[in-house]
Design a protein around this nucleic acid. Structure first.
Lengths: 338, 338
DNA sequence: GGAGAAAATGGGATCGCTCCCAACTGGAAA
DNA sequence: TTTCCAGTTGGGAGCGATCCCATTTTCTCC
């Protein structure tokens, strides 16, 4: 079949190019019967507007970009990004947007790709996740005037973001441990280049302080969100004789559990554990993990909705949202969960 | 800064639009000193060609699409797709291509998206994964003449694909069990709408037959690649008093391991296990899994390379590649692995 | 040194759409 | 009936590249 263009549809329905365009965009006034006729032809022929021409001529391409600026180690270890991608694609499908994925595997990718992303005009706007604190990408994006939504909060007041309330979530988890009577509560933190990891650790500290406990830095071990780093960190913590641990992600908690079991420690009998994320595997761990649930898919979908809103109504005022978390009680702390 | 176009670069370097275009595309003849001058201006200004204009005017947009036609249940349970995405993005970054991601969450997505993908001219070509046997998408793509590479083999001789040699891989795994002396070997299959799952089961059967064993259909349980389905399937198999199991994916093997441990069966003492994939968690399972490694990232990268080759040299003859697998011996079968 | 070929360069036409303004329509008001 | 205006409709002018052909420059060789 020959290539379908606006012009061809116009010809077939006996109107002009402009009118067909108006019908397709569903804008401005077109008389009902002309509209119906044109829609009929479009339906029949299966016409789809050419995206490239569209974005060349007008301002919108209906393409949004998802940037994952993570050096990607945990990309497959941890289901966070897959879930985020799911949420984002779900929403882009619903809103008839096309998704372009930019995944930085290392710094040179970042340097190579970011100018392209910014000046290419391939995308109408961007959803940006996995950035580190002080990531140079964010200021670059601000300066370039490209509309974008960050996943995770940011200090700059001009930035729109969707955040998960990590501080409060972590705080509630640690409060729960304190309430159950644990005294010597360690923490396994995530990669502290990461805003979320910082906030979770901050929540841990706040909970301790607000209940009159001292924060003992020797009880805080840094990991990097991988299962293995959780394993290593837990092995260090065991020597500190903690009676409970707050682990910043379920993925690391799984590693921590493995370390404990290899050392003959029973959970929660010898050491209690709370973690963060509520990934599917958390429920099936041994013992099932008490963990702070964050709605990752929801976050992705919200990011898309927020970006589309910005695209339609402008970037000011910046949209700043914090999604709540929920403590899912299972048996890894003893207590109510059984 | 005002918008950078070819014309502007031309002006700045004192040549014509066409010449700059030739420099950018790195085609045809341009005298060395002019080329150098133009490249200098491009470097200075940070010019990036407008992708939309490019694809409108020429034939290539340097955008390739990745279609994941999986109703996405296992998308985050199993690291297969994340790894594939990694491999693909790695390669698209290396080859200066942009990646557009199409994720079908359900059938209505597929129906809605596939015409758009095909006629939109958004992408130069497609990498298609997660399709079922008899998926209507494949014939549609063939008919539409859009260049594409399938991940996983396909009967139609016109289709180019990158396959993993699932039959041989499964066969070697089951042969290994047989060699170790196991007699009553069960199987937990993947979703049999899936070519790979069929092939793995086929490999299992071939191995049995080639060693003179009978295939007992009551020892074959179907799962769907999720951890939970592995758990359920194993619970059924226990009653069949098997002494070994071939599990079609590590994700299901993890569930099977859980079922066994809950039933007080020790691995490999009471029941031996081999599985497929060699995901990162396989190494950390208890006991570490003997499993067939498939190079998923490599598959993704190969798919990109193959597609680019097709884009450059035409789709005929179809490219058909099978990647080898490797049996990684750990301790879940007893035997050499310790 | 000049003819002819090859290499380098320039500019018009074009891709398929949106934007904008002009022109046409028909009904209400004068 | 004429005038006016809102509601429609049509078509020209780009958007920023590529492609192709025409033109100019440079090289080669007799």
């Amino acid at each position: 079949m020959s290539k379908l263009t606006l012009e061809k549809i116009a010809e077939l329905s006996g109107v002009s190019r402009s009118t067909v365009s108006r019908v397709v965009r569903n804008h401005e006034s077109v008389s009902p019967n002309v509209r119906k006729r044109v829609l009929g032809v479009i339906e029949e022929t299966g016409y789809q507007p050419n995206a490239a021409a569209r974005s060349l001529a007008g301002q919108r391409a209906n393409v949004i970009g998802l940037v994952i600026a993570e050096p990607a180690q945990s990309l497959f270890t941890d289901p966070y990004f897959p879930l985020l991608i799911q949420g984002v694609t779900q929403a882009t499908n619903d809103y008839d947007q096309t998704l372009t994925l930019f995944l930085f595997h290392n710094h040179s990718d970042e340097e190579k790709l970011s100018p392209r992303i910014i000046r290419n005009q391939l995308v109408d706007g961007l959803i940006v996740s996995g950035t580190h604190v002080d990531d140079p990408l964010v200021p670059q994006l601000i300066e370039s005037n490209i509309p974008f939504v960050l996943v995770g909060r940011h200090e700059d007041p001009r930035v729109s973001f969707i955040d998960v309330d990590n501080v409060t979530g972590a705080q509630s988890a640690v409060n729960y441990l304190i309430r159950l009577g644990y005294k010597r509560i360690g923490a396994i933190a995530g990669d502290l280049k990461n805003r979320g990891a910082i906030d979770r650790l901050d929540g841990y500290k706040r909970a301790l302080r607000s209940r009159g406990h001292r924060v003992d830095e020797t009880l805080i071990i840094n990991g990097d969100y991988t299962e293995f780093s959780g394993f290593q960190a837990m092995n260090q913590l065991i020597e500190q004789e903690v009676d409970a641990v707050f682990v910043s992600s379920d993925g690391m908690a799984l590693g921590a559990l493995r370390a404990l079991s290899e050392n003959g420690c029973s959970v929660p009998h010898d050491i209690a554990m709370v973690s963060f994320d509520d990934i599917p595997a958390a429920m099936h761990a041994k013992p099932p993990l008490t963990t702070v649930r964050q709605a990752v898919r929801r976050t992705g979908a919200m990011a898309v909705e927020t970006l589309l809103d910005i695209l339609e109504s402008g970037a000011t005022p910046p949209r700043r949202l914090a999604l709540p978390t929920e403590l899912i009680v299972r048996s890894s702390c003893g207590g109510t969960g059984g």
